[in-house]
Measured scan of single mutants.
Amino acid sequence: NQASVVANQLIPISTHLTLVMMRSEVVTPVGIPAEDIPRLVSMQVNRAVPLGTTLMPDMVKGYA
Rank of each mutant, 00 (worst) to 15 (best):
V60Q: 00
A7M: 04
H16K: 13
N8P: 01
E35L: 09
P29C: 07
T28M: 10
R47Y: 09
T53N: 09
V49E: 02
L17W: 02
H16S: 14
M22R: 00
A7T: 09
L40T: 02
P12F: 04
T54S: 04
L10S: 15
Q2D: 14
V60G: 01
V20D: 09
D36Q: 14
P50L: 14
T15E: 08
P50G: 12
N46E: 08
R23H: 05
T15N: 04
V26E: 15
S14F: 15
P57A: 10
V5E: 00
T53G: 11
T28L: 08
M43C: 09
V30S: 13
V27W: 03
R23A: 06
G62H: 13
A7Y: 03
V20P: 07
T15F: 09
L51Q: 13
I13S: 13
V41H: 03
T15C: 07
N8W: 04
S24R: 08
A3D: 08
V27F: 02
A48E: 14
T18Y: 03
V60I: 11
K61V: 15
P50K: 11
V49K: 01
R39Q: 10
P29G: 03
E25N: 09
T28C: 10
P57N: 05
P29W: 04
T15K: 06
G52F: 05
N8F: 04
L19G: 05
M21S: 03
G31H: 02
M59A: 08
Q2L: 10
A48P: 09
L10Y: 14
V6Q: 03
A64G: 12
T54Q: 03
I11G: 00
R47M: 11
L19I: 08
Y63H: 04
Q44N: 04
T54R: 03
L55K: 01
V6M: 04
L19S: 07
M21W: 02
K61A: 14
T15I: 06
G31T: 01
L40Y: 01
M56H: 07
T54I: 09
A34R: 05
P57F: 07
S42V: 04
A48Q: 13
M59G: 03
P57S: 08
N46A: 09
L55S: 00
G52D: 11
M56W: 05
G62Y: 09
M21D: 04
L10K: 14
Q44D: 02
I32C: 05
S14T: 09
P29D: 07
V5T: 06
A7P: 02
A64K: 12
A3Y: 12
T54H: 02
S4N: 02
D58W: 14
M22L: 14
P29V: 06
T53Q: 11
N1M: 15
N8G: 06
R47F: 07
L19Q: 07
V60R: 01
I37A: 09
I13W: 12
A48N: 15
M59I: 05
I37Q: 05
P57Y: 08
L55P: 01
D58L: 11
N1R: 05
E25Q: 13
E25K: 09
A7K: 02
L51Y: 15
A64W: 06
V30I: 13
V45G: 02
A64H: 13
I32Y: 02
L51T: 13
P57K: 07
A64E: 11
V45C: 06
V26Q: 12
T18K: 07
G62C: 12
Q2M: 11
A7N: 00
I32G: 01
Y63R: 04
P50E: 09
G31M: 02
S42F: 15
P50T: 10
M21C: 04
R23Y: 05
A7R: 02
Q9S: 11
G31I: 00
M22W: 03
V60D: 00
D36E: 13
A7V: 06
S14K: 11
V30K: 08
L17C: 03
P38D: 13
L55N: 01
G62K: 07
A34I: 06
